[in-house]
Nucleic acid binder design. Structure first.
Length: 1045
RNA sequence: GCGGAUAUGGCGUAAUUGGUAGCCGCGCUAGACUUAGGAUCUAGUGGUGAAAGCCGUGGGGGUUCGAGUCCCCCUAUCCGCACCA
């Protein structure tokens, strides 16, 4: 063996560990750079090749920055709280900490093998009390803060109390759950409990009765981003809406900042867009409608105040609190039934019925504040309680949902907007609503003739003048539900006095997670922590039994890395002033609405407190694409399908003189073939299956007057093998009108699995693809022996081969690109690849695969190419006998050109995160140097430094062989010298009318006239000139010459 | 339905940002060597054609001396959001 990667990689990994090569500290003499990977949750399955993709990229970036003279912070740790470990604990009784520890160790082992440059001295785990002390601490700060809308900043709750004492709510503009108004005297007259309740209306971490996503299977509530399509993201269990007392974070207070600060970060546009959607800002108006005959105001939010003349009815969400107050006695039953119906459906059912129109009339009427018109008030679940005010003014002419509703319940439709330059038409003739946002107002009193945009402004002025509405900005973002009814999470530093929650003193932190004997909820449905003994404060007050959600610990972890061992504070002023925020954040795009929103909120809050010097946590972010698996398939013969196919071949096209149809269905019964003319039913199946249906089917056939034939597949197969025609004869007899027994007992066939090779004719008709472990397949050829040993049920498998080009029998597998997963047997484990090719090869290959941000399939064979490259690289430094052999002669100009071209490409490539092109540039460089037989130190020494971010092990080995004592990590990146790459001639492509015809080597100093003369004089040019004079000659120095004829 | 992204050989991809389309690697073909191997090395490899050449970056149009790249229209795939008033 030429290069022994196994030995070399182990040696240097040990050296790095022993000498703490990757340990970093604050160094004011160097600029800082912070490279971070998204916090991994250590799952039981370990890493597959998709996971390290981002880690390798960030590792390369970190190493490169270090070579460029930066002091690079590059830490790693674990998001250690999580549902899987807890689910496992519920099933097996194993403490989640034990499972988590085991998984972490496995992750660490796998990561170590790939040679990452993490400073492991800074590792954090969210489940470590030394860490979650600060998660709890932050929660207390949130609890003790409110958001001042005037100064757009979080403020201590004490300031609010002081204000209440002097002025009551007068002059307060704060983020709140609901509007409140009281005087200083009233405040002072309140009991402590009442005051605490008032404060809950303002705290940034508050407790409230909220409509939550309850997941009965997991026994907990979930945040909005943890629910997709009405199912839990973890586990895929159904979720229902339920009202419960919960902790929430008032993230909505930060909606505007979360939105506008997106402009200040360097993230890709699609993630920003997802975040913008999630915040969901819309500007419009709040309009008050009186309810006829009642002293009730209905507040409505609309973005189309211009259409107020076109509103013909109103709709409330079924959960709206005023529904029962406005409903008239004669409509009460109907309304209550509708509410009950809406409530009993899960989120998922409700979503599935999106386009189904339903609703109920309350009997009440609202009054249009502008026109005074009477508007019937309905309830319908197409109006959501969670958005706006849960009530709408319906404008059926210009909103598709309102239109559908109006049509369904025969409500009037009035057109108020026209397409510019067209006349209004009768809405009764319309097929759909006219939703256009640019148009001209009609039928709208003082708005007539205005554009939509102008009309909105004008209407808001009018509403404000009349005191019946105001301009208002609305956000889709909801406050984040922060409690989980689970064990494995941070306990809340909260105790209850007189039923009201109070924050513990900071000196009591960390409040450690107690041990309990079982991880399930209690019998009366309380969270698992209710099982803990003595879960009370020193004074005897009960402690909160909910725990915090997964995103609690991961929201501020990047700050803790800056000062991970500080037990006095979250992180020191000095550390934060130096490291600031993350310069480059790499991870998957799946965190777009969860982690990335929450940590931005967390960071902004800490910024308001003056703790974090930066308002945004992650300055630049790159989202790596998924690595998909390439699954292999073997094709298992489905005898039933095969027999059906064979028999159908005989029946079709009236071969026996009568027409047969396939797949005949009658109610729940299904038969393979049916002859309508003769009333013949035929079913082909296994003996066992036929025996089950023979009696009921006979009965059915009798009733209908059909003739029935149940054909055991054994008969079809035996006919085929023995050359008999028993089945055929029976069918012919039936057609001829003879009596044939419906079913005759036969010996079943022994079931031997049979597999057909991919290209066998008609394979797809009679076989089913089954996933094959990719380790049993090489170049799509199945190792049939290993395959039969793979699983017990395949022991006796037989194969129908095809011939390869040399005439040998081979079994060819099919393939498909799918998600990498255990169940598809297509998981590529990095450990195996490190074992076989070395970590450097794996690192290079993962980068070589393609642009980091794109999803791409994993090609098992492609890695050979980078493996060859690594050894070719090694050979530059060694002679034929694998002896280290580097010359001290000065490098030639072409050698220097090769080197400096690479320096430029690597710098540009790394900065623009196109690592794939850099690997390709390395290959080109090594190919050129090999051709030049270059083994000069002047070239190879910088080259060693340059490859070290990608292939740190071989670089370290060669660096030491070159005579250095310290690590290559501490070397300096070579400096690009443009003069080394310039040539004094350029090989010009000469084109005629834009088509490239030939090349011509010309000095770069030549003037345009000289070039033109030289080109036209060239013998090859004559052929293309066709004797004409050129109209024009385009000359772009060092690019092209184009002759226009 | 709305929004975003993508489309280049058999495959993963590259193209100095408007200047020789297909770099690099896989695969494939041929050859060399050999202790016959899923090893290594050398050469070739977009299509078509004997060749000159012609065609070719999802499709159609346009701008330009010149378009994978810019503009307009269409198609397909992927991702996100979705009764958001």
């Amino acid at each position: 063996m030429d290069y022994n990667f196994n030995e070399v990689e182990k040696k240097w990994q040990q050296y790095w560990r022993d000498n703490k090569i990757y340990k970093v500290d604050i160094d004011h003499d160097k600029p800082k750079f912070y490279v971070l990977d998204m916090f991994p949750y250590p799952s039981g399955a370990g890493l597959h090749v998709g996971h390290p993709l981002g880690y390798i990229a960030s590792d390369i970036y970190a190493r490169y920055k270090r070579l460029k003279g930066f002091n690079v912070l590059h830490p790693m740790g674990y998001d250690a709280y999580g549902l899987p470990a807890e689910q496992y604990a519920i099933q097996t009784g194993t403490h989640p900490a034990v499972t988590t520890e085991k998984n972490i160790n496995r992750y660490r082992e796998q990561m170590d093998k790939i040679g990452f440059c993490y400073d492991w001295d800074r590792e954090v785990r969210t489940s470590d009390p030394k860490y979650y002390k600060w998660t709890q601490w932050t929660f207390i700060q949130l609890f003790n803060s409110f958001y001042c809308n005037k100064c757009q900043k979080a403020q201590p709750i004490g300031k609010l109390i002081a204000h209440f004492e002097e002025h009551g709510t007068d002059g307060i503009n704060a983020a709140e759950s609901k509007p409140m108004s009281f005087t200083a005297a009233e405040w002072k007259a309140m009991s402590e409990k009442e005051q605490q309740e008032v404060l809950m209306n303002y705290r940034l971490a508050y407790q409230a009765e909220a409509l939550v996503n309850w997941c009965p299977e997991l026994g907990t509530v979930l945040a909005n981003d943890e629910v997709v399509d009405g199912l839990s993201v973890r586990g895929g269990f159904p979720v229902v809406r339920k009202s419960m007392k919960q902790w929430l974070l008032r993230i909505t207070a930060y909606a505007e900042r979360l939105l506008s600060d997106l402009d200040n970060v360097d993230w890709n546009e699609s993630i920003k867009e997802v975040q913008r959607n999630w915040v969901g800002k819309s500007m419009g108006a709040s309009v008050i409608f009186k309810v006829e005959g009642k002293d009730i105001d209905l507040e409505v939010f609309t973005t189309r105040a211009d259409t107020l003349f076109g509103t013909t009815f109103m709709v409330l969400a079924p959960e709206h609190e005023l529904v029962s107050a406005i409903t008239t006695p004669e409509h009460r039953t109907e309304v209550e039934e509708y509410i009950a119906h809406a409530k009993n459906r899960s989120e998922r059912e409700r979503m599935a019925e999106v386009r189904k129109v339903s609703g109920a009339f309350t009997g009440a009427y609202g009054i249009n504040p502008i026109t005074g018109a009477k508007l019937p008030i309905w309830i319908a679940d197409y109006v959501l309680m969670g958005y706006g005010t849960g009530a709408i003014m319906a404008v059926p002419a210009h909103d598709s949902r309102d239109f559908a509703f109006a049509r369904h319940f025969s409500l009037p439709i009035i057109q108020v907007v026209t397409k510019p330059g067209t006349e209004p038409t009768d809405p009764a003739t319309w097929e759909e609503s006219f939703d256009a946002k640019d148009g001209v107002m009609v039928n709208s009193g003082f708005l007539n003739g205005l554009t939509v945009k102008k009309a909105i402004e004008r209407m808001i002025q009018e509403l404000e003048k009349l005191g019946v509405g105001t301009g208002k900005t609305n956000y889709r973002l909801r406050d984040a539900i922060f409690s989980r009814q689970r064990y494995w999470g941070e306990p809340f530093p909260i105790y209850y006095k007189d039923g009201m929650p109070y924050a513990m003193d900071e000196s009591k932190l960390p409040l450690e997670l107690p041990s309990i004997d079982e991880y399930k909820p209690t019998e009366n449905g309380e969270p698992p922590l209710a099982r803990a003994k003595n879960w009370v404060t020193e004074e005897g007050y009960p402690i909160e039994t909910n725990t915090m959600p997964g995103f609690a610990g991961s929201s501020g972890y990047y700050l803790r890395y800056q000062d991970p061992h500080n037990d006095k504070e979250y992180f020191s002023r000095e550390a934060n002033d130096y490291w600031q925020n993350v310069d480059l954040y790499i991870g998957g795009a799946e965190h777009a609405t969860g982690h990335l929103i929450y940590s931005r909120f967390w960071c902004k809050f800490l910024f308001d407190l003056g703790l974090s010097c930066k308002e945004e946590p992650f300055q630049r972010m790159i989202n790596q694409g998924m690595i998909q698996g390439r699954s292999s398939f073997a094709y298992r013969v489905n005898i039933e399908k095969l027999c059906e196919h064979a028999v159908w071949y005989q029946l079709k096209d009236k071969k026996y003189g009568v027409e047969f149809v396939r797949d005949f269905k009658d109610g729940r019964r299904r038969f393979d073939f049916f002859c309508p003319e003769k009333g013949i039913l035929i079913e082909i199946n296994r003996v066992g299956n036929l025996e089950k249906v023979v009696e009921p089917w006979k009965e059915y056939a009798n009733e209908k007057g059909y003739k029935l034939l149940l054909v055991p597949i054994a008969d079809v197969v035996r006919d085929y093998v023995k050359g008999t025609n028993k089945v055929e004869q029976k069918i012919k007899d039936l057609i001829a009108g003879k009596d044939v027994p419906a079913y005759e007992e036969v010996q079943p066939l022994p079931s031997t699995p049979l597999f057909v090779s991919k290209n066998v004719t008609d394979r797809e008709v009679f076989s089913d693809p089954i996933h094959v472990d990719i380790n049993l397949v090489h170049n799509d050829i199945l190792d049939t022996i290993a395959f039969t040993e793979w699983r017990d049920d395949l022991k006796n498998a037989l194969f129908l081969f095809e011939k390869d080009k040399d005439g040998n029998n081979v079994y060819i597998c099919g393939s498909e690109v799918e998600k990498m997963s255990k169940s598809k047997y297509n998981v590529q484990n990095p450990d195996d690849l490190v074992e076989k090719y070395g970590a450097d090869t794996l690192r290079l290959y993962e980068m070589f695969l393609g642009p980091l941000e794109q999803s791409k399939p994993w090609d098992v064979q492609g890695i050979e190419g980078t493996y060859r490259f690594v050894r070719k690289f090694w050979r530059l430094f060694h002679n034929e006998n694998n002896e280290f052999c580097v010359s001290n002669e000065p490098a030639t100009a072409p050698e220097m050109k090769t080197l400096h071209t690479l320096i430029k490409k690597e710098e540009d490539g790394i900065e623009s995160i196109s690592f794939n092109t850099v690997v390709s540039a390395f290959m080109i460089c090594v190919n050129e140097l090999s051709d030049l037989k270059c083994n000069k130190r002047e070239i190879l020494e910088p080259l060693t430094v340059m490859i070290s971010p990608y292939a740190p092990h071989i670089a370290e080995e060669l660096w030491h062989l070159l005579g250095h004592d310290s690590s290559v990590v501490n070397a300096s990146f070579p400096i690009y010298d443009e003069s080394k790459t310039v040539e004094n001639s350029f090989n010009y492509p000469i084109s005629f009318n834009g088509k490239m015809r030939f090349n011509m080597e010309l000095p770069v100093t030549m003037s345009a006239e000289e070039v033109q003369a030289a080109v036209l004089a060239a013998p090859e040019a004559q052929k293309w000139m066709e004797g004409k004079t050129p109209k024009k000659v385009i000359f772009v120095p060092k690019k092209i010459v184009n002759v226009v004829i």
